[in-house]
C-alpha cells in the first residue's frame, strides 16, 4: 500500500535520512522504533508531504506521492497524528474536530463528529472547551479523533504515548489497535515505547541515525537480543 524507496531527507543543509526503504501493506500495523533523533518524525513528515525527499521515492497505492503537498496527500486518505498532540490550543474541541474533517462535505463532518463523540465520550463533555485547557491525555484523545475525522485509510501516529501515564498509554494503544483491526485502517506507528508498540504491531522496523538497521515480525523482534538490550531495556 505504501512503499518508500531509498529516500534521503535533509533540513536545509543537514541531512537526516540516509537512504531509507520500507513498505506497509494494506491492513497491517507496522511499528517504526528508534531512539531520540533517529529520524522517525522526519520519516512521517516526509510521507505526509511536509518535507520532500532529495532522492528516492514514496508510492501510495502505486502512485508517486513524494512531490505532493500535505493538503493533497490527506485527500488520498493518508492522515498524520503528529508528535506532541499539536491540537489547536485556542480552538474548541468541536472546532478541532470539525477542521479534522476539513476535506469532507459538511453533512459528513457532522456524522463523523457524532461517531467520534460516541467513541470518545470525554470529548463530548468538553466540546466547547478550548483544546489547550485540557489534560495531556484528553488532548491525545482529541488529536487521535481529529485525525480520524477525515476517514483515512492509512494513518501515521507519531509517539502517541509521549508524556502519558501508563494506564492512559495502554488505553491509547488499544484505540490504535482497534482502529487497525476493527476499522480496517492501515497504520504506521512511531514509538519510543518499543515494548508497547511491538505488543500491538504486526511488523516493525528499527531506525538508527537515519537508516534502518533491523526489520521483522513484531513477535520475532521482541525476542531479538539486540532489540531487547537496546530498546526493551532487558
Amino acid at each position: 500500500m505504501l512503499e518508500i524507496k531509498d529516500i534521503k531527507v535533509a533540513y536545509k543543509r543537514t541531512q537526516v535520512i540516509y537512504g531509507l526503504s520500507l513498505h506497509v501493506d494494506e491492513g497491517e500495523l507496522v511499528a517504526l522504533i528508534g531512539a531520540n533523533g533517529a529520524g522517525k518524525s522526519t520519516t512521517l513528515r516526509t510521507i505526509s508531504g511536509l518535507l520532500h525527499p532529495s532522492a528516492g521515492s514514496i508510492q501510495y497505492r502505486g502512485a508517486d506521492i513524494h512531490k505532493l503537498l500535505p493538503e493533497q496527500i490527506v485527500r488520498l486518505g493518508i492522515a498524520h497524528c503528529p508528535e506532541g498532540r499539536r491540537v489547536w490550543p485556542k480552538l474548541t474541541v468541536e472546532e478541532n474536530l470539525s477542521l479534522g474533517g476539513y476535506i469532507l462535505p459538511k453533512q459528513r463532518v457532522l456524522e463523523k463528529m457524532e461517531s467520534m463523540y460516541a467513541h470518545f465520550p470525554i470529548l463530548k463533555d468538553r466540546r466547547s472547551q478550548l483544546a489547550g485547557s485540557m489534560s495531556g491525555g484528553e488532548q491525545q484523545m482529541l488529536a487521535i479523533a481529529r485525525t480520524l475525522m477525515c476517514q483515512p485509510s492509512f494513518m501515521l501516529f507519531d509517539e502517541p504515548s509521549l508524556g502519558l501515564a501508563p494506564r492512559i498509554v495502554e488505553q491509547v494503544m488499544d484505540i490504535i489497535a482497534n482502529i487497525n483491526k476493527k476499522e480496517n485502517v492501515t497504520v504506521l506507528l512511531v514509538e519510543q515505547n518499543a515494548n508497547m508498540a511491538l505488543s500491538i504491531a504486526d511488523r516493525a522496523y528499527v531506525i538508527e541515525s537515519g537508516q534502518l538497521t533491523l526489520e521483522g515480525k513484531a513477535a520475532d523482534l521482541r525476542q531479538d537480543d539486540y532489540v531487547r538490550k537496546a530498546y526493551l531495556g532487558k
Binding site: P70, H80, P82, K90, L91
Partner: peptide
Amino acid sequence: RATFQDKDVAAMTG
C-alpha cells in the same frame, strides 16, 4: 485561525 496556531497541522488536515 488553525493556520495561525499551527500551520503544519493545518496543512495536514487539508
